[in-house]
């Protein structure tokens, strides 16, 4: 008969034994994470496949991502720099970087909520760790981020002369931004921590959303509001410029101080645009990361095995 010509024994990338005594244990939750990470070839392929499918048969392909980001950033940059009376050469990089980082954060929530709902078919047909699907979402968003990053590079190259020295975003603003330099490399740990958070958000919000189908709708409905509430098109400077220095510690600052998304934005945007970065942002981000992962692990422990029932 057709004996298989195997030249290499099949790997045991999957756990050899599925023992449902582990159903509601942390061991099961960590096992899922570990097995998911090991299936790197699978989720990286699936992430790419999502991108390719979306742009199939179009001439520019995934570069539409880059192009649409470029158009948006340029349009918004020109418009709002005039409205706020800001200098185009520093304002366009500000809004571009903010916008592309925001995209990653918001899409992590938005698409993370749909992670398991969209993969319902696969979840019911193949015994794969949940983490694979969360990583698929995060990887897809990372690919989009990298495509968008080309716009940042172009914009920074164009306005480099104004960015590499201290500048004020808005004339007469209180904060003097230090300008970009070697310290801008701090954006790398910033991005790494952003990715790390993308994974737990996909897992946690994804699991909750499979059970409560109103969650994705809710996230969808507040996403535009969050965009305008977070300093992306406007800057913290414009608050102080309008209300004076005494407002800088008042309730008006709460809109960004108590907005974790602002801090996530800052740890990437500030280094990349040479803006001023408060250490508070890093503290907030690290706390959110730790708490988020702990909650996610508990939810994974209790409801990991339920997801295939709920989808």
């Amino acid at each position: 008969m057709q004996a298989t010509t195997t030249t290499e024994p099949p790997s045991s990338a999957k756990p050899a034994a599925v023992d449902t005594d582990r159903s509601r244990t942390f061991k099961g939750a960590f096992g899922d994470l570990g097995a998911g990470l090991r299936d790197r070839q699978l989720w990286s392929h699936l992430g790419w496949q999502d991108i390719r499918q979306r742009y199939r048969r179009s001439a520019l392909g995934p570069f539409w991502i880059t192009l649409s980001m470029g158009i948006t950033a340029l349009g918004l940059g020109l418009l709002y720099s005039q409205i706020f009376g800001a200098n185009i050469s520093t304002y366009v990089p500000y809004i571009t970087t903010g916008f592309l980082t925001w995209n990653f954060i918001m899409q992590s929530l938005n698409q993370g909520a749909n992670t398991f709902i969209k993969n319902a078919g696969l979840l019911k047909h193949l015994p794969a760790p949940l983490t694979v699907y969360a990583l698929r979402t995060t990887w897809r968003l990372s690919i989009i981020f990298l495509h968008n990053f080309a716009i940042y590079i172009i914009v920074t190259a164009v306005f480099f002369d104004d960015l590499d020295q201290p500048y004020r975003l808005i004339p007469g603003a209180a904060t003097l931004n230090p300008g970009i330099g070697w310290w801008s490399l701090f954006a790398i740990p910033g991005l790494a921590i952003l990715l790390l958070n993308g994974v737990w958000v996909s897992l946690l919000v994804g699991i909750i959303s499979t059970r409560f189908r109103d969650v994705p709708q809710f996230i969808d409905s507040i996403s535009s509001l969050l965009f305008f509430m977070t300093p992306i098109v406007w800057s913290v400077d414009s608050l102080t410029a309008k209300f004076g220095d005494e407002a800088a510690s008042g309730p008006r600052t709460w809109v960004y101080e108590f907005n974790p998304m602002y801090h996530f934005l800052q740890i990437v945007r500030a280094p990349l645009t040479g803006g001023q970065l408060s250490p508070n942002s890093w503290y907030v981000v690290l706390i959110v990361t730790a708490v988020g992962w702990c909650v996610t692990l508990v939810v994974m422990r209790n409801y990991r095995a339920r997801v295939s029932y709920w989808v």
Partner: peptide
């Protein structure tokens, strides 16, 4: 794919 809601499976 389904872990039993009650009882055990060992695969």
């Amino acid at each position: 794919i389904y872990e039993p809601t009650r009882g055990k499976t060992k695969i």
